[in-house]
């Protein structure tokens, strides 16, 4: 399995360690990982703000950089949804066919591990951990990703606790968070205020984690937020002696 790993712009700058862990996970399940040169951003920030032209430019660049990749894996449900659903719609003709063909081979990390690599159990390194999982809206609704991350977490021994608001939006929404910060923060509060007692919150989406942790930090809450890739790698690591849980 040759996988082209696309860190995404947010992953590159804010979740570099999680991206490293994602690469390790992919190698762990037998993939040969490449990071194509020149990748920047999928274009989602522009698309969601109504800038279709600008989004098309970023998307075209991304399609060219990824070229004829066998598989594309991203550590983000939202960017994966962009690649799979919105990018093809930005193009016509040959470009659209290329985008559609690539979309069919593009996966969010946990989705790839379960649906393509066929992995359910990574290790047992998460035993004793109480975890809350935040479902990113686009992973949930556009990728139809309901239980892949949960199965992987549980498979590695974590206890994924019930959280009433686990499928509610964190309030990020790209430009929305900056245009309407008070509403966006209140949405994060609705999630944080219903959070059960856990060791940490995790999600396949870095944008959501940035929003939730940023709001929690402003409120001086001590909740920890960790990217799913790092959590799952911890699940592998302990059992194979590569890593110990912090």
């Amino acid at each position: 399995m040759r996988v082209s790993f696309f860190s995404t712009c947010l992953g590159d700058r804010l979740f570099a360690d999680a991206c490293v862990d994602a690469v390790r996970l992919l190698r762990h399940v037998g993939a040969t990982v490449e990071v194509p040169a020149g990748l920047t951003c999928c274009g989602q920030p522009a698309l969601n703000a109504g800038y279709a032209q600008e989004a098309r430019r970023a998307a075209r660049h991304t399609l060219e950089a990824l070229g004829g990749a066998d598989w594309v894996v991203l550590p983000s449900g939202s960017c994966t949804a962009m690649m799979r659903h919105h990018v093809p719609e930005l193009f016509e003709g040959e470009e659209r066919r290329h985008a559609e063909a690539l979309a069919a081979r593009t996966y969010e990390l946990s989705e790839f591990l379960v649906r393509v690599a066929g992995v359910e159990r990574l290790g047992t390194g998460l035993s004793g951990r109480r975890v809350a999982y935040h479902h990113g809206c686009h992973a949930l609704r556009l990728l139809g990703e309901h239980d892949e991350p949960l199965r992987l977490l549980a498979g590695a021994g974590a206890e994924v606790v019930d959280w009433r608001a686990d499928r509610e939006c964190c309030g990020f929404g790209g430009l929305f968070a900056a245009k309407l910060p008070a509403v966006s923060a209140a949405m994060a509060d609705a999630k944080l205020d219903s959070l059960p007692d856990v060791h940490f919150v995790t999600s396949a989406d870095g944008g959501c984690l940035m929003q939730l942790s940023g709001r929690a930090g402003r409120r001086l809450l001590t909740t920890r937020f960790r990217h799913l890739a790092s959590v799952l790698w911890e699940g592998v690591g302990t059992s194979v002696g590569l890593r110990t849980a912090p």
């Binding site: 590159d12 700058r13 804010l14 570099a16 968070a177 910060p181 923060a185 994060a188 930090g217």
Partner: peptide
Amino acid sequence: GGWTDERLAPSFSPKPFH
């Protein structure tokens, strides 16, 4: 400001992934 009025600024990784 739109971001940091309501939240802490995001913490950047010491080195980017690339």
